[in-house]
Design a protein around this nucleic acid. Structure first.
Length: 330
DNA sequence: ATCTTCGACCGCCAAT
DNA sequence: TGATTGGCGGTCGAAG
């Protein structure tokens, strides 16, 4: 699994800059913008924590036309981008149009000052134009991957992933993958428990919640078969048991070879690898919400020993279980 | 740190 | 004819 430079300690960052700025423009992609507003702009008092401070900045003077025929207004002070902790690029109106230099400058400054920048769908072309993706892995909507690759050959385009996390530069595929990437960021900031509550409010499919892998592979390209979904639910309810591929295949009433193949096609990871990711997520939740010992959590999450838990935990999150607990259970 | 064992994964291919 | 299935075996990595 490819790994690239990342701010591995982001999970234990001390005083996060929680200002999130979404970049609007004439011809705004309404859905992608809506994803950003919903995830970061909706007040969530029920979580009992300080949520993000969400703002919108436009590169064009209003009124801005939005996809769907509405118009909106937004302030145009691009300085807000340079002060943001997180910048969201919710698409771009035309992948062939060079974004305004003022915007690219603001993004470069923000990046230099440590801000995270995430793109949804065609928003990746803005990051690319700013040169912030050179030598890095990135993704976008499958309709644009070829164009992105030919226009920016120095970018390592990943066509088959939901999103790519380079630490401070994050890109996501088709519109809805922006939700997955946003949840991934929220998980980095606030832990799996909070992120799962947000996901539940959004009613997104649970198996897309994933772990903290930097690299989440493609969503289903074929219609999901009901038996596979049933089996996935079954596995999620039996994480603490010893489950082999044969057990899974038997539950799905398929041969193990066919099960493994179908599983990989639909979820993008091999069955056991996915199982391990789910177990790490379970361990994260237990670390955040209980005072149980690491040993006990390891057993409950289905790992044979605390050493095994630590091994996989570190691989997925780049931190140790106890550091993780300290960061999210203050 | 190193070794052994065992299961997972995946390419290949024949059968359906 | 093309797509799907499932068995085989080599390789790799996890677990202890």
């Amino acid at each position: 699994m490819p790994r690239s430079s990342t701010d591995a300690t982001s999970a234990v960052r001390k005083r996060p800059n929680n200002r999130v700025v979404a970049v609007a423009y004439d011809g705004l992609c309404s859905f992608e913008f809506g994803v950003a507003a919903e995830l970061f702009g909706l007040a969530r008092p029920e979580l009992g924590i300080a949520w993000y401070d969400f703002a919108v900045v436009s590169v064009d003077k209003g009124p801005l036309r939005m996809l769907g025929g509405m118009t909106m207004k937004a302030p145009t002070d691009l300085g807000a981008i340079e002060r943001a902790g997180t910048v969201v690029l919710p698409g771009w109106r035309d992948t062939d149009e060079q974004p305004p230099e003022a915007l690219l400058d603001a993004l470069r400054v923000a990046h230099r000052k440590g801000a995270r920048i995430m793109s949804i769908c065609s928003g990746v072309f803005i990051l690319a134009a700013a040169g912030l993706l050179d030598g890095k892995m990135a993704t976008t909507h499958w309709r644009y991957t070829d164009k992105l690759h030919s226009r920016f050959p120095e970018i390592d385009v990943q066509p088959d992933v939901l999103y790519v996390d380079n630490g401070s530069i994050l890109t996501s595929a088709g519109s809805a993958a922006g939700i997955d990437l946003g949840l991934h960021l929220i998980r980095r900031d606030h832990g799996a428990h909070i992120a799962n509550q947000v996901a539940r409010r959004l009613v997104t499919p649970p198996h897309r919640e994933g772990g903290q892998a930097q690299f989440i592979v493609a969503p289903p390209s074929t219609p999901q078969s009901p038996s596979l979904n049933d089996t996935i639910d079954w596995i999620r309810h039996h994480l603490s048991d010893d489950i082999t591929i044969d057990d899974m295949a038997r539950h799905a009433t398929m041969s193990s070879r066919t099960f493994a193949r179908r599983f990989r096609n639909e979820l993008g990871v091999a069955p056991h690898q996915w199982l391990t990711q789910q177990r790490v997520v379970r361990a994260q939740e237990l670390l955040e919400t209980t005072d149980a010992s690491i040993d006990h959590i390891a057993q409950t999450a289905g790992f044979g020993s605390a050493a095994t838990l630590r091994h996989h935990f570190h691989r997925e999150t780049m931190t140790s279980p106890s550091d993780y607990r300290n960061a999210f259970r203050a």
